[in-house]
Amino acid sequence: MSKKVEHNIKAYGNNFTTMTPGPFAIKLRTCKIWQFIRFIIINIKMLVVVRKSH
């Protein structure tokens, strides 16, 4: 998976200096247990921002 993303980088092209996710980072994005935890955390963070904004 990580190799596939790396293959999109074009030497000295627009995207040559950016970072790309590895297989672990990509796996975590769709791991339901981890994402459920992140869902709770992101919701709390967003509610704090909403509260600070009113």
């Binding site: 994402q35 992140r38 963070k45 600070k52």
Partner: peptide
């Protein structure tokens, strides 16, 4: 502390 970004299913559910 209040500016963040994240990629994943969680944001999609939100």
């Amino acid at each position: 502390d209040y500016t963040f970004g994240e990629i994943g299913l969680a944001g999609h559910w939100i």
